[in-house]
Write a protein that binds this DNA or RNA. Structure first.
Lengths: 351, 351
DNA sequence: GTGAAAGCGCTAACAC
DNA sequence: GTGTTAGCGCTTTCAC
């Protein structure tokens, strides 16, 4: 196959151990000239240590797993890119796993990663319970839960990283309330996930600050069926808006669970002959790249994705490389309101 | 660490070789009851073979590399998801590599993958030349070049998979010509890449069929600077449309190099007070998920992405698992015109 | 300061 | 049919 450590050693006139020492930065234990000679030989032969052998010997590998619902979703695609960038800088590779939000698939993937010797995974699962991966955690799998906050019953030491969803939704809701809107609707799929529930709580909190209650607002949570798919969510937004706008007293502002959903809501409003930003205000969540490209550009809540990805990787790496008992908990990153053209004064106010 | 093959062997009262034979489907060589016993022991102990040891021993690994410009781009994100799905079905894992279209990064990544024992990579690079990865190919790296067709000077045996860009662009262009448009523009970044050039050829071919020449059309290729970035391309579309629409005799139809670019063009048309699909027709390319969600929904050329991803993985796997001399060449998949609301009859015709 | 030797967990000849 | 054996390429004590 390729060049081995023995060939390098032979060429340099030293033993494999010395080459290994050079490779692993233990160069203090040898004459500078020896190190020099070995390094030159390595360069000349274009030698690169065999990862599998290293892995087998040390039990460590410079690979992490990244489990996301689906990289076809621009939000997760962007996150994946940032995680990969952070990993690359630290000399790690990233194994991509699309779970399609299927707990069985999440578990199976973690099992396979474990068998492949991978000991660190960024798990993007919004399922309220992580019990399906508990056996892995108990065996020692390093896990960072992304897009989720700590829940009672979580394994000890679990690090959760998420945007502050409640604060984000509150920012979004207050924004339209401040614009004079009083008939609001919240459009989401099933509220089964942790972060969706937090967003709804933020929505409620803002309403209360303005003397309203959730009962005054409309809620469209996708009915009984479980709209968890990332690909149907624009359709869900579309259908929800169609229904809401046809009601007797339709909302003038819609807070969507995320940008993809908001895009569906906007499309539906257009179908109904409404001008988004004038007749109807729409707010998204995430600030995916396309929020800015939509017609009209979408007002939304930005998640600090690069910082979140860096934090996720940094925590994961720390967990893998040190064997300290990780301090579990939730890291809630600060969201930011980005005002664009999809929101405007309430129709009543403008007149 | 985990359970080893020796423990399984001891528990089942056989030798490690027999367990290995069971694991590798060589069960014909043993008594059914032996196999049975081993399988039960494996299940009972929850044994999974150590990937690194297997890899070191056989030189093979069930991991492929996927090099894409950036999964933050929805097109590549969707492609990555399909490749991962195909790989998963065959028991392979996928290592995600974002190249940001940087040849040095592509090469470095391939070198690392090689050192990690990975012998198959789907390389999504639209660079005309693949010479920067030639050393890898010569060492035996299995490569599928995606989104690119064979070029003179390519390494022998290289398999290229791409949509038929020329046919796609021709379909797009003929569509607007048939709608009566005669003042067309082609908006692209630099035409340095193979597929962009092919699309431009398709554009020209359609014009010629209608008795026009490229000289009759406007071309905006981003000027001298190199707009290769996937993230700037909507801005490029925006800027291009702004310029084109301000001209003395502005186009009534714009063929954009891809959907992201078309979205930028649409946004710009809106800025200029034009109704896309009425005052200006816009056609994209790719049919990313968002084409259907745009306002108005985008007429575009669909790439058969699932089929392409399956083909890419299947060819790659064949190349890895058999040691036959792969028959190199180009696989051009058939594109499809998807008509939505962003195109309509030319203004002259409608009157 | 440098080298010899053992072994990580698995597979695949080759014996028996 | 089943077991014995010899490594795959590397790291890491432990001698010298």
């Amino acid at each position: 196959m390729g060049v081995t450590i023995h060939q390098v050693a032979a060429e340099a006139g030293v033993s494999p151990s010395t080459v290994s020492n050079v490779l692993n930065g233990r160069s203090g234990r040898m004459l500078p000239q020896t190190r020099e000679r070995v390094e030159q030989t390595i360069a000349r032969l274009g030698y690169r240590p065999n990862g599998a052998a290293r892995h087998l010997r040390t039990g460590r590998t410079q690979v992490i797993g990244l489990v996301v619902p689906s990289v076809a979703n621009p939000f997760w695609g962007t996150f994946a890119r940032h995680v990969e960038a952070a990993a690359l800088l630290a000399g790690y590779r990233v194994l991509l796993c699309n779970s399609e939000r299927d707990p069985a698939r999440e578990r199976d993937y973690l099992e396979e990663l474990w068998a492949d010797g991978i000991r660190g995974v960024v798990l993007c699962s919004s399922l309220p319970s992580l019990e399906h991966v508990l056996p892995l955690v108990e065996r020692g799998m390093g896990l960072i839960a992304f897009d989720r906050t700590a829940q009672a019953g979580d394994p000890a030491g679990l690090v959760n990283i998420s945007v502050d969803n409640a604060v984000g939704a509150e920012l979004a809701t207050r924004h339209v309330l401040e614009l004079g809107h009083r008939r609001l609707a919240f459009v989401s799929g099933s509220l089964r996930s942790v972060n969706r529930r937090a967003r709804f709580r933020g929505f409620e909190a803002a309403l209360e600050q303005f003397g309203l209650t959730a009962a005054d607002a409309l809620l469209f949570s996708g009915g009984a069926q479980d709209h968890f798919g990332d690909l149907d969510i624009p359709d869900l937004g579309r259908a929800a808006a169609r229904e809401l706008l046809a009601a007797a007293n339709p909302p003038t502002a819609i807070i969507a669970i995320n940008d993809m959903c908001a895009l569906g809501v906007s499309a539906s409003a257009r179908d109904a002959g409404l001008q988004v930003g004038e007749d109807l205000s729409v707010v998204g969540f995430d600030d995916i790249m396309l929020a800015d490209l939509a017609t009209p550009p979408l007002t939304t809540i930005r998640q600090p994705l690069p910082a979140m990805a860096n934090a996720a990787f940094a925590h994961l790496r720390a967990g893998i490389e040190q064997d300290e008992p990780a301090a579990g908990g939730s890291l809630l990153m600060r969201p930011e309101l980005v005002v664009r053209a999809s929101t405007g004064p309430a129709p009543e106010v403008r007149r």
